Amino acid sequence: MTALAVSSVAFASEGGGHALFTAENLKDYGLRIVNFIIFAWLLYKFGGAKVKDFFVGRRDGIKKDLDDLQTRKVEAERKLKEVEAGIANLAQEKKQILDDARAQGESIKSAIIEKAKRDAEALTEQAKRTASNEAQAAVDSIRAEMAEMVVAAAEKIVAEKLSAQDHDKLVDDYLTKVVLN
């Protein structure tokens, strides 16, 4: 009905103020309506299922997209909460890492100090042994030197006080002791 009313206004403005419904106009108008009905029926008959499938498919696609968007929104909100929780725990994790690093540093420091003490004790002990060995070597060297000096002094004294006759007697006594023993 609306189509008739709109088209009649269009015909009226075309006619230049003449009568709206003349026989010629009505026949032309009727043919156009019949032509439109046939065209609409042909579209429905041959393309109706495809058009219907298109719109149903489009509706299903939009519904699927909306469901997918809802699922992605829920997933994004879950990830956002995880990130927010991670950010909230960041200060705690930072404190834990610093505490762990501090404890590890103290442990390494203790180990280094303990090793340094052991090394110092070992070096002290080695220095004592070295000093003792050097002192003993010095004492032995002094004793050897003293012995040589005593022998030299004894030889000198004996050479000064011993006559040739005393020397021969001493050699004979010594040889007698060696032969008898």
Rank of each mutant, 00 (worst) to 15 (best):
D65L: 14
D65K: 14
D65E: 15
D65G: 09
D65Y: 13
D65F: 15
L66C: 04
L66V: 12
L66T: 12
D67T: 06
D67Y: 11
L69C: 03
L69Y: 04
Q70V: 01
R72E: 10
R72L: 11
K73W: 08
V74M: 11
E75P: 00
A76N: 05
E77D: 15
E77H: 06
E77V: 05
R78S: 11
R78N: 15
K79M: 02
L80V: 03
L80F: 08
K81T: 08
K81R: 13
V83W: 07
V83E: 05
A85C: 03
G86R: 09
A88H: 13
A88F: 14
A88T: 13
N89M: 07
L90N: 02
L90R: 02
A91R: 04
Q92L: 08
E93N: 03
E93S: 01
K94R: 09
K95P: 01
K95V: 14
Q96F: 14
Q96A: 14
I97S: 07
I97V: 12
L98C: 01
L98S: 11
A101S: 08
R102M: 07
A103E: 02
A103Y: 03
A103T: 09
I108K: 12
I108Q: 11
I108W: 05
K109T: 10
S110L: 13
A111V: 00
A111W: 01
I113N: 03
I113W: 00
E114P: 01
K117L: 06
R118Y: 05
R118I: 05
D119I: 04
D119A: 05
E121I: 00
E121P: 01
A122L: 10
A122D: 09
L123F: 13
L123S: 10
T124D: 10
T124M: 12
T124C: 04
T124A: 13
K128T: 03
K128H: 08
K128Q: 13
K128I: 05
R129M: 08
T130Q: 07
T130A: 03
N133W: 07
N133L: 07
N133R: 12
E134G: 04
A135T: 14
Q136G: 06
Q136Y: 14
Q136I: 15
A137K: 08
A137Y: 08
A138R: 07
V139I: 11
D140C: 00
D140W: 01
D140K: 02
S141K: 12
I142S: 15
I142H: 14
R143K: 09
A144R: 09
A147G: 02
A147P: 00
A147V: 01
A147I: 04
E148R: 11
M149D: 15
M149S: 11
V150H: 10
V150F: 15
V151Y: 02
V151P: 00
A152E: 13
A152G: 10
A153S: 09
A154T: 13
A154K: 14
E155K: 13
E155D: 15
I157P: 00
I157H: 04
I157R: 01
V158L: 07
A159P: 03
E160A: 09
E160P: 01
E160K: 14
K161I: 04
L162F: 15
S163Y: 00
S163K: 02
A164N: 14
A164G: 14
Q165P: 01
Q165D: 11
D166T: 00
H167M: 12
H167C: 07
